Simulated scan of single mutants.
Amino acid sequence: MRFRLPWWVLPALLALALRLAATLTLRPWHDEYFTAWAAGLPWSELLAALRWDSGPPLPYLLAKLLSLAGIPALVAARGLSVAAGVLATLFVGLAARRWVSASAGPWASWLFALHPLAVMWAAEGRAYGLLSLAVAWSLWVLGEQEAQGRRWLGLAAALGFGLYTHALGLVWLLAVLAYGVLARRTAVLWASGAAVLSFLPWFFVMLQQPPEAVAWMASSLRDVPAWARWLGPLRLLPPLSGWAYTLEAPAVSGSWQLIAAVVSLVCLALARG
């Protein structure tokens, strides 16, 4: 009998290769140096410093733990992101197999493995790679729960992981909670509630974090044209997205990005069949 690799192996290897290449070649930026600096602090000083940051503590704590093993803090932070990006590639495919069709899994994994934004997230020592893992993980767990009626603890863990990773984890939790309400899924509501309860200790810390730490978000959004805000999700779908420039690669025009987005949607629709 001829041996065949599992469907997820090649997308995962491609994801690993691209993310390693990116993290080894891209120059660190100031937020990554902050992560490295914070991870080098004693535990008590680390938690005190994060009260002046704009997000949850998990990325810093994980980098701190790895640095205790002798790994340089910046290397630890970027290594965590690379690992999270590869795992997210797997979970994206698994989620697509549950929510769409068996044939959609490889398509979704290949798309995520190649996407410049996903590569960028996993190439820098910040929270975004871990956040993408949290979203993909919770999507898969939610699909497994729908298909097999499993308990809600796994979903609660994935949602809690997202909450402690990045402030946008709260936005994702609200989306999952809305699904639970509209679909009348009691287990989803229990999982969301458990995740919120687990996050309460840090939530009150976040309320005291300075508004200046997140002021850049509002200014950046104002700089984006209105049409780009509405078409943003569609333009970010294909590997030809405008985020290519963040990897110091040439970015194509907006019209080509939209064409590529339509092609990606068609491919996903075909995969559903």
Results as ranks from 00 to 15, higher is better:
201 P>V: 15
215 A>Y: 04
190 W>D: 10
214 V>C: 10
213 A>F: 00
204 F>N: 11
175 A>Q: 08
175 A>G: 07
137 W>C: 10
259 I>S: 13
184 R>K: 15
226 A>S: 07
214 V>L: 12
263 V>C: 06
197 L>A: 07
211 P>V: 05
172 W>F: 09
262 V>P: 02
174 L>V: 15
130 L>Y: 01
202 W>L: 02
143 G>A: 09
181 V>T: 15
156 A>Y: 08
168 L>N: 10
151 R>P: 10
216 W>C: 08
221 L>T: 04
229 R>F: 11
163 L>E: 03
193 G>E: 02
137 W>G: 13
173 L>K: 04
130 L>R: 09
189 L>M: 05
153 L>N: 12
241 S>E: 06
155 L>F: 01
254 G>S: 11
204 F>E: 09
246 T>F: 14
209 Q>I: 02
160 G>L: 04
141 V>I: 15
211 P>E: 05
157 A>C: 04
260 A>M: 03
144 E>P: 12
157 A>G: 03
209 Q>W: 15
249 A>F: 15
181 V>P: 11
221 L>R: 07
160 G>S: 00
214 V>P: 02
202 W>H: 02
131 L>P: 14
154 G>M: 03
244 A>L: 09
263 V>I: 15
196 V>R: 09
254 G>P: 01
184 R>A: 03
239 P>R: 00
131 L>E: 13
138 S>L: 11
146 E>V: 14
185 R>E: 14
225 P>H: 00
191 A>I: 03
165 T>Q: 01
236 L>E: 10
181 V>H: 09
230 W>Q: 09
199 F>L: 14
241 S>K: 00
177 L>V: 10
211 P>N: 06
238 P>E: 01
131 L>Y: 10
258 L>E: 00
162 G>E: 02
237 L>W: 02
264 S>K: 00
136 A>W: 02
171 V>M: 14
162 G>Q: 06
171 V>D: 11
210 P>G: 08
196 V>T: 06
228 A>T: 08
196 V>F: 03
139 L>G: 03
165 T>R: 02
259 I>N: 07
136 A>G: 09
247 L>T: 03
194 A>V: 13
170 L>W: 14
157 A>V: 05
145 Q>D: 08
221 L>M: 07
157 A>P: 04
231 L>R: 04
205 V>A: 06
183 A>W: 13
161 F>L: 05
262 V>M: 04
190 W>E: 14
217 M>S: 08
155 L>R: 01
261 A>I: 01
208 Q>V: 09
233 P>Y: 07
138 S>Q: 07
159 L>E: 05
149 G>T: 06
177 L>H: 08
157 A>E: 00
231 L>E: 04
185 R>W: 06
255 S>M: 09
153 L>G: 10
129 G>V: 08
222 R>D: 04
188 V>W: 02
235 R>Y: 01
220 S>Q: 10
186 T>N: 10
155 L>M: 05
196 V>M: 07
185 R>H: 07
154 G>C: 03
262 V>I: 01
